[in-house]
């Protein structure tokens, strides 16, 4: 039995490890970074910190924690994945949760860590590699027909498709349309809260019903375990044998009465069961040897 339990527990542990392993790809680290918006031809759009109109690349941190992009590589040539190394140790390279970072593709790396050592004019692909320079985090194939001041990006943060965007939004969400909150959307369909009440009560009942079912059966298991095996059980007669849910107090009283009867320690006084003091000088009940522990020294 013990071996079976051990095997069962090992199986569960293995299952958890497998599930955890398959979810590792979702771990919140540099792997959560992705390209979000790119402007190849910047004639009159946003300017960099030197006041120059230049091409830019926006990276989005899709994780719910801060990710440091320092140490990663940006490139426009998959044959040279370590083309631009993003310096480490700079607090500016930390991208906070669900936030954006813009790099200027002006081939002027001396202007700061956000200025890359390549242009986008002739680039066909841009890619982001992790600190090893070998693992690709994200890449984008750039189309050939770029229009001036029109950005190419994901319409929403979660989108996998890339399209030309109506409005350039460096360092901000590409989806600038007014959004309803989750609550507003919910109430639009359920203005009186009836749906919410039904769903929520169903979920609360489901959660607690599962607990109920498990504990109902677990209780049966433990009660069965607590009852001695058949061969060791005394023969019981009448209704007592059927009454499995007899309380502990009743069992204890019956056991005590049987013990007293068998040991002939009982006495009768006006038909009331009593425990009288034994008129002996010594009794284990009054002995200090049996009732006290030795004092610590």
């Amino acid at each position: 039995m013990q071996r079976r339990i051990d095997h069962f527990l090992s199986g569960i542990a293995a299952l958890i490890l497998i599930v955890a392993g398959t979810n590792l790809v979702k771990a919140q680290n540099a792997g959560d970074l992705k390209f979000n918006e790119i402007l190849v031809l910047n004639d009159s759009s946003s300017v960099d910190d030197f006041g120059v109109h230049t091409a830019w690349i926006e990276i989005f941190n899709s994780a719910y924690n801060t990710v440091n992009i320092g140490g990663c590589y940006l490139t426009d040539d998959l044959g040279n994945p370590t083309k631009y190394w993003i310096p480490t140790g700079d607090p500016a390279t930390k991208i906070s949760s669900r936030n954006y970072m813009v790099f200027w593709a002006d081939d002027k790396p001396t202007r700061g860590i956000f200025h890359l050592n390549f242009h986008l004019k002739d680039a066909k692909t841009i890619a982001l590699f992790d600190a090893s320079g070998k693992t690709l985090i994200d890449k984008v194939e750039l189309p050939a027909d770029h229009k001036a001041d029109v950005t190419y990006g994901r319409p929403t943060n979660e989108s996998q498709n890339w399209v030309y965007l109506e409005k350039s939004t460096p360092g901000a969400n590409n989806d600038y349309t007014k959004k309803k909150s989750a609550g507003e959307s919910f109430v639009e369909m359920d203005p009186f809260g009836i749906g919410m009440t039904m769903i929520a009560m169903f979920v609360v009942f489901s959660a607690l019903t599962i607990l109920f079912i498990i504990y109902k059966n677990m209780g049966r298991f433990f009660i069965r375990k607590a009852i001695p095996k058949k061969e060791k059980m005394p023969v019981m007669v009448g209704n007592i044998a059927k009454d499995e849910e007899m309380s502990g107090e009743v069992n204890a009283a019956i056991a005590l009465a049987l013990y007293l009867y068998q040991s002939e320690l009982h006495d009768e006084e006006n038909t009331v069961l009593t425990i009288q003091k034994v008129s002996r000088n010594y009794s284990p009940w009054s002995s200090k040897i049996y009732t006290l522990r030795k004092s610590p020294r």
Binding site: V187, Y215, K216
Partner: peptide, 24 residues
């Protein structure tokens, strides 16, 4: 007595009753 668990679920009706009234 696991069936008592379900009473704890039923009493949550107060939450969602108040939700409906608050919306109204």
């Amino acid at each position: 007595n696991p069936k008592l668990i379900l009473i704890g679920a039923a009493a949550q009706l107060g939450i969602f009753g108040a939700y409906c009234i608050a919306l109204a």
